[in-house]
C-alpha cells in the first residue's frame, strides 16, 4: 500500500506539472483528492492491515494528499499570474496620445492685478470699500476740493447724466463717502478699487472706461514719510524687492503736498532705455497728503487729523508689468489675450 500511495503521489504531481489551464488543475484535484479518488480507495483497504501498520499508512496518505494539494495551489497561483499578465498585455494603450482636455476658466488680468493689490494692502491693515459708479457732482468733485469753476476739472472731462449726476471719474468719491460715514472721529484706512469713466476716445492708450485703485489713510499724526514708507512697501512687494521708488512733487486738487511715484525701470535698472524713455524711472501712481479742505468737508478736523491718499491704474500697471501694448485689449475679451494670464 505504501508503494501504491507513493506511486499515486508521483503520478498526480506529474499531471499537475503538465497542466496548463485552471480547468485541468480542477480535474486533477477532483480525480486525486475527491471522495471517489484513488487515495480514498487505498484508504478504504486499510481494514486489511494490522493495527500497527494502520497509523503509519494513514499518516502517509495524509502527507500524500497534502503534497498534491500544495502542488495544486502553487500551480494555480502560477497559472493565475500568467493569465493576468496576458490580460494586462492586451490592455496596453498608447500613453503618448493626448489626454482629454479639461475646460478651465480663469480671472481677467485686471482682476488678478486688482486682487493682488487688495491683498497687499489688506496685509497692511487696509479695508476694501466700494461705492456707486454713478456719482453726484458733490462726491466726485466738490467734496474733493474741486468746486464747479475749478480749472482742474478740465483735466477730467466727464460723462454727465444730469447736471448733478455723472459717471465717476475716479474712485475717490468712495473715500469721501467713507470719511462721511465715519463722522470725523475714527481713523480711515481703506482702498477702493473700481471702474471709472472719462470722456476719452478709445485708442491704444486711452479708454473711456478703465480701472482705478485708490487708497486713503486718515488718523491723528499721519506723516508724509508714512506715505513714502507704505508706498515703498507696496512697490517692493508688488514689483519686486530690487525695485527702487522715487517720489516727485506733483499736483492734485485733493492733496497737498502732492506726489507722483516712479519705480526704477525693470529693463535697464535705472540706466535709461527706451521703455523708461531714457529716464531710468517709470511713473506708477499719484498721491499726497489729504488736502485740509477735503478733511474739513468730510467732518475731520485738519488740525487734529491728517492723512495720505494715493491712486493707481491697474491697466497701466498691467501694461508695464506684462508689456501689453494696447489698452483696448482689456475690454475686447479676445480669448487669446485672456488665456495668457490664466497661467501662474
Amino acid at each position: 500500500m505504501k508503494e501504491r500511495l507513493q506511486e499515486l503521489q508521483q503520478e498526480a504531481l506529474d499531471k499537475v506539472n503538465e497542466a496548463t489551464t485552471l480547468e485541468a488543475l480542477q480535474t486533477i484535484r477532483v480525480s486525486y483528492l475527491g471522495k471517489k479518488g484513488p487515495i480514498t480507495e487505498v484508504l478504504r483497504g486499510m481494514g486489511k492491515l494490522s493495527p500497527e501498520e494502520r497509523p503509519v499508512i494513514g499518516e502517509l496518505a495524509n502527507k500524500v494528499r497534502e503534497a498534491i494539494a500544495n502542488q495544486l495551489d502553487n500551480k494555480k497561483a502560477d497559472l493565475e499570474a500568467q493569465a493576468l499578465e496576458k490580460k494586462l498585455e492586451t490592455e496596453k494603450i498608447d500613453v503618448t496620445l493626448p489626454g482629454r482636455p479639461v475646460s478651465v476658466g480663469g480671472p481677467h488680468l485686471l482682476t488678478s492685478i486688482v486682487e493682488e493689490i487688495e491683498d497687499l494692502f489688506i496685509g497692511m491693515g487696509f479695508e476694501v470699500r466700494e461705492g456707486p459708479e454713478v456719482e453726484t457732482d458733490y462726491y466726485n468733485f466738490e467734496a474733493l476740493n474741486l468746486p464747479k469753476d475749478h480749472p482742474a476739472r478740465d483735466m477730467q472731462d466727464s460723462f454727465y447724466i444730469t447736471e448733478d449726476l455723472l459717471l465717476r471719474t475716479h474712485t475717490s468719491p468712495v473715500q469721501a463717502r467713507t470719511m462721511n460715514e465715519y463722522k470725523g472721529n475714527k481713523p480711515v484706512k481703506m482702498i477702493c478699487p473700481g471702474k471709472v469713466y472719462r470722456r476719452d476716445t478709445d485708442d491704444a492708450t486711452h479708454s473711456h472706461q478703465f480701472t482705478q485703485v485708490e487708497g486713503l489713510y486718515v488718523d491723528k499724526d499721519v506723516r508724509m514719510s508714512d506715505l513714502k514708507g507704505v508706498l515703498n512697501q507696496f512697490a517692493k512687494q508688488f514689483f519686486g524687492e530690487e525695485r527702487e521708488i522715487r517720489l516727485r512733487p506733483s499736483f492734485f486738487p485733493f492733496t497737498e503736498p502732492s506726489v507722483e511715484m516712479d519705480i526704477s525701470c525693470k529693463v535697464c535698472h535705472g540706466e535709461g532705455c527706451s521703455v523708461c524713455k531714457q529716464t531710468g524711472w517709470i511713473e506708477i501712481l499719484g498721491g499726497g497728503m489729504v488736502h485740509p479742505r477735503v478733511l474739513e468737508m468730510a467732518g475731520y478736523d485738519p488740525t487734529v487729523y491728517s492723512g495720505f491718499a494715493f491712486g493707481m491704474g491697474p491697466e497701466r500697471i498691467a501694461m508695464l508689468k506684462y508689456g501689453v501694448d494696447d489698452i483696448r485689449h482689456f475690454y475686447t475679451n479676445d480669448v487669446r489675450f485672456l488665456k495668457q494670464y490664466h497661467k501662474a
Partner: peptide, 19 residues
C-alpha cells in the same frame, strides 16, 4: 522728497480684510 525718511504709520494697528 528723496530725503524724506521711510516710516510706517504709528496709529493703532487695524486688521484689514475683505467683508
Amino acid at each position: 522728497y528723496d530725503h524724506l525718511p521711510y516710516t510706517l504709520p504709528q496709529g493703532a494697528a487695524q486688521a484689514g480684510g475683505l467683508t
